[in-house]
């Protein structure tokens, strides 16, 4: 019965997973410090034109391996404790786009597909037959093709895709800065629990052996 239930669970899961992520491009996230550094530079120079990252302070960028000097270069006149807010006031952005562009701190968790969604969105701009700019993933998106993907040739597109990979990696980090630490601790926790469970199993065996051979497995 246990086996049957397990099979059912796996089937159920497979079905649930198949719902989403059909039209997203493949993305190999590069979470290395070099990649994250390139990512934060694009975010700082380009994305912050319209978007806030209100949960990320300059000081916290130490978490991706930036030195104090590099952080100072990024922040300019801002204080280390300041958040990475947009250069443009919210009212002005609202006037331009009709809405305030969404905050990016949690973007990699706020869309089905996460970082892959971000990567796909930024590399899905194209000009349609009438010469109008549109996006395959998000038709009618109000965001401009800020990286110029639609008008780029094949070689330029590869460079942009590279740049977007780093942006996606940085936003993935920003959505949960403790992820690496969490994984690191997680292995120790699982190792500890495995040893503990093994010892408890041994003790259980020994305690139950006092009862004699009358086994319970046949029930």
């Amino acid at each position: 019965m246990i086996r049957l239930l397990l099979c059912l669970m796996v089937l159920h899961w497979g079905a649930a997973l198949a719902i989403e992520e059909h039209e997203l491009k493949d993305l190999k996230l590069d979470m290395s410090p070099a990649s994250l550094k390139q990512g934060v530079e694009t975010v700082n120079n380009v994305c912050r034109g319209c978007h806030d990252l209100k949960f990320i302070s300059f000081a916290s960028l130490e978490g991706i391996g930036l030195t104090t000097q590099e952080i100072d270069d990024l922040r300019g006149d801002a204080k280390p404790a300041d958040r990475l807010m947009s250069y443009v006031p919210a009212e002005a952005r609202h006037a331009t786009y009709g809405v305030v562009p969404p905050d990016l701190s949690l973007m990699a968790r706020a869309r089905e597909g996460g970082a892959r969604y971000i990567y796909t969105l930024l590399t899905s701009f194209h000009t349609d037959a009438e010469g109008k700019l549109d996006n395959t993933l998000f038709p009618g998106v109000r965001m401009p093709d800020i990286l110029g993907y639609a008008g780029a040739n094949a070689e330029e597109r590869r460079a942009i895709e590279d740049q977007v990979t780093h942006v996606a990696a940085f936003l993935e980090w920003a959505s949960d800065p403790n992820a690496e630490k969490r994984h690191h601790i997680g292995w120790y926790v699982l190792g500890y629990l495995a040893v503990l469970s093994f010892l408890l199993y041994k003790v259980k065996k020994r305690v139950w052996s006092r009862l004699g051979a009358m086994h319970t497995s046949g029930f």
Partner: peptide, 8 residues
């Protein structure tokens, strides 16, 4: 002990 093993 059996419950603790299960808990582990």
């Amino acid at each position: 002990i059996k419950d603790l093993y299960g808990l582990g």
